[in-house]
Amino acid sequence: MEEFPQGLQNSKDFSGGDSKKCQRTVPCQGYFAPQRIEEALEILSRYGKEIKIIAGGTDLLVQYYDRLYEINNWLDLKNIKELKEVKINKNQMIIGAMVTHTQLESSEDIKTYYPVLSQAAADIGSPQIRNRGTIGGNIVNASPAGDLLSPLMAYDAQFKLQSNQREMIVPAEEFFIGPKKTILQPNQLLTRIILPLPEEKTYGCWIKIGKRKALAIATIILALVVKMAEDNKTVKDVRTCLGSVAPTPIEIKEVRKKMAGKNFNQLDFAELGQIVEDKISPIDDIRGTREYRKDVAKEIMINALEEIDSARRERNY
């Protein structure tokens, strides 16, 4: 190895030793990492479109690969502790926008009340991505294939948007308006995700089809949530939400009409699958053709209904 230049082995200087806690407050020009929401909103109102909000960065740094220099100002939300909390408030679950996929996946409350969301988070990317990527980032990025979006719609999520002028709460369904497009204004921050606590006999199923088990951008996503009546047989309400089949995550409302008030035992799963297939108009892209997506949509709808059926039968009330 004599051909290697001197100085290459100097990495020794930084090796070994014990980790101590290192705390510094953050500068400075071009990069802001405030500790409070109000400060963040203040910075946002000052810079508007001239600043980029960064949460986990797992989409943003991919998008700006090799041209990060185009971004002059960063607003990093990493120090705002209240955005990292998952808590129950009366009959609502409040999830901070900076909650990571790992947090979602490992939260017992999320697992209990929103298993579809929990599983969706567990299926995102890889450990490295789940440790950084956040629910808020996933929502604001608004990819048609965003893993958490269909489950959030299926659980009737609402988003809290704040600016230093006012705050508003919008249903998930109204938030997404196109691929990577939302109603969020440059001076607004998505701060919290609000989910109603589900009724007791609520069942859910999560199906994601992708090319691999890890690091797959979904070819098609189904989040199915069914609320049963007291008898655990009669369908009270249902949400059939799909991803990667339209410019935004969508709900197939026709399924609601078809299932509401019916006895689950007497449902025609194939017919319901067919409704899903008929009501979507996906495009051909690198991950799958329109035809493939329509075929698969039907099949996964049938599978999801079967899974919910067996979960329902296993539960004794």
Binding site: F4, P5, G7, L8, S11
Partner: peptide, 13 residues
Amino acid sequence: MGKAKYPDDIYFD
């Protein structure tokens, strides 16, 4: 140990 030097790991002043 991460010590093996691949092409991009070589730096000159």
